[in-house]
Every structure is written in C-alpha cells, then in structure tokens.
C-alpha cells in the first residue's frame, strides 16, 4: 500500500511548543468568546466509558445531553454521546429523535490487543445496535514494532465494515513516544480511510494536549493540500476547562481554517467540559462568577 510507505515529515517539538505558546497568548474576548463557547458545546462528544456504566447512568447522561441548561435555550446541544458497544442501544433509545449522534468505541477498546476478527465483531455489534460513529483504536504494539502495514490494513478493514458510519481512529498518542510518531500514526490513519483522527482513549494519564493536536492538525492540513479532502479531528481526555477548549478552537482556526470550525469536522471527547462551558457562558451573560451547584451533573 503505497500510501503507508509515504514518508511522514519530521516534527520539531520545540517549534510546536513555540507555535502553541503563540496560540495560547491569543486573547479571546466578548463576542468571539460567546461564539467560541457555544461552538465548543456543539462539538462535545459527551462521554462515559466506565466498566461501571449501567443503563441508568447512560440514560441520565443522554438526558443531560438533551437538556444542557434550561436558562439558555439558545445554546446548541452536544454533538454526540460516546459509549461502549453494549450501551449503544440504550443511548440510542434515550436520545430518540434529538438528532444527537451515538458514537461507540470499538475494536477491543482501549488496548486494541485482540484479533481482527474480534475487532470486527466488536464493531459490528456497535453498528447493529445503531451507532452512528465508531471510535476505533489502532494497534499501538504493532505500530511500535514497525508493522505499519498491519496497522493500516486493520484501519481500512474496519473502515469498510463501518459502511455509512463515520470512523474515528484513536492513535492513543500518549503511548507513541514522540511527536514524530504521532505524525506518522496520523498519516497512516488518514491514508487508510479514517474520517476522524482522535488523540486518546482517556484511559491512560497522557491524553490530548495542544502540541499533539497541533501535529495531528498539520497532518490533516497537509493531506488536504495534497488531495483536497477534509479529515476531522477529535482531541479527547484532559480537556475540562473552557479556556483550554477555546485555545483548541483557536488552534484549529489557525492551522486548518474556519471551514473546520463545526462539529462535522471537530469534536471534543470530554465529559466535565460541558458544565464548565455552561458556567463560562453564564458568567459572560450575567457578569457574575458561577457555582457548580447551579449546573446539573449527570
């Protein structure tokens, strides 16, 4: 597969940090801030991925997704609910006709340490239960062993199985070891058919960061320059504050441009971020600093 043999460009970590420092020095005020907060809410994949997930927990989360905050009806709803395959049916039912998508992790999430057959079955189960989007993990072990073709083939096989469902490919960047590797994994995923590339499972301490996201956005941009095709991006894990979310949006705007600024092309994998965005929105509206007690937790 020539696409995979393509050499990924090197990444200079200090240069990336410099770039991030410039982005985070940006000042996002007034109208822009309000729009950014709303946009960020609309981009959330509200996530619960617990061994302890129950029908009740998932249903409550779906309620939260639909009724974020009664006081501000102008606010959009989140983009999707993200759950395990076994919970897809429950979520689907709870969300009804709300238009909120159901995303399901699959392919032996989070480690990916299983056979392709099992991974396909896992994916199929999620799809059969009605998942709109599949969040697969790559085989990091194989990647680190240098078996890039294996990783690529797995992605393209799952992509084929997905049919109409959009495929998010989780690189688990915290396990890859360097930004050069993040870039290489991004290129493999993109060229193997990923609709989204996603940073992390949220199951290890090193989750999404701005530098890692910047590298992945550059891969998306370079692919766009080469082919004219847009790939979507999803940082996940570790994004719980509004200010950080706004910095992510700023980064997307600067690296990819305004056309990526919608939930079709950018998502946040997060849970507690939603309430922080709501609080900031309320603060911007009322001028008063907010308390968590006034925002529902589910």
């Amino acid at each position: 597969m020539q696409l995979v043999n393509r050499n990924s460009p090197p990444v200079d970590q200090v240069g990336i940090e410099d770039r991030i420092a410039r982005v985070t020095a940006r000042s996002i005020k007034s109208d822009m801030k309000l729009e950014g907060l709303k946009m960020a809410i609309s981009m959330i994949d509200l996530t619960t991925l617990e061994g302890a997930d129950t029908n009740g927990k998932v249903t409550q989360l779906c309620t939260k997704a639909q009724y974020l905050c009664n006081e501000y009806p102008e606010l959009p709803s989140v983009a999707a609910i993200c759950v395990y395959p076994s919970m897809v049916g429950i979520a689907k039912k709870a969300l009804g006709k709300s238009g909120i998508k159901v995303a399901s992790v699959a392919t032996a999430f989070p480690s990916g340490q299983s056979s392709l057959e099992v991974k396909l079955l896992d994916t199929k189960m999620a799809l059969d239960n009605g998942a709109d989007e599949i969040d697969m993990v790559i085989s990091r072990g194989k990647f680190l062993q240098g078996e890039y073709d294996f990783v690529a083939d797995e992605i393209s096989t799952i992509k084929e199985a997905c049919g109409e469902a959009r495929l998010k490919v989780i690189l688990e960047t915290g396990e890859l070891g360097s930004l050069d590797q993040v870039r290489k994994a991004s290129d493999i995923a993109i060229y193997s058919g990923a609709d989204f590339i996603k940073t992390s499972t949220g199951k290890i301490p090193k989750a999404a960061t701005l530098p890692v996201t910047c590298v992945m956005l550059e891969a998306i941009r370079d692919y766009y320059f080469e082919t004219g095709k847009m790939i979507a991006m999803k940082p996940a894990g570790g994004i719980s504050k509004s200010k950080l979310a706004l910095h992510y949006l700023m980064l997307v705007k600067e690296v990819l441009g305004d056309q990526w600024l919608s939930n079709e092309w950018f998502r946040f994998g997060a849970s507690s971020l939603a309430n922080d965005l709501l609080m900031q929105y309320a603060k911007a509206q009322t001028g008063a600093y907010q308390s968590y007690d006034y925002f529902s937790i589910d």
């Binding site: 200079d12 200090v14 991030i20 930004l179």
Partner: peptide, 13 residues
Amino acid sequence: HPIEKVGAVGSSY
C-alpha cells in the same frame, strides 16, 4: 538549536 523535551521533566507531551 532546539532541545527536544519529549520524555523529560515538565514535558507537555
């Protein structure tokens, strides 16, 4: 010349 800090103390990656 830049010094990569990946894996070092305080690294953001």
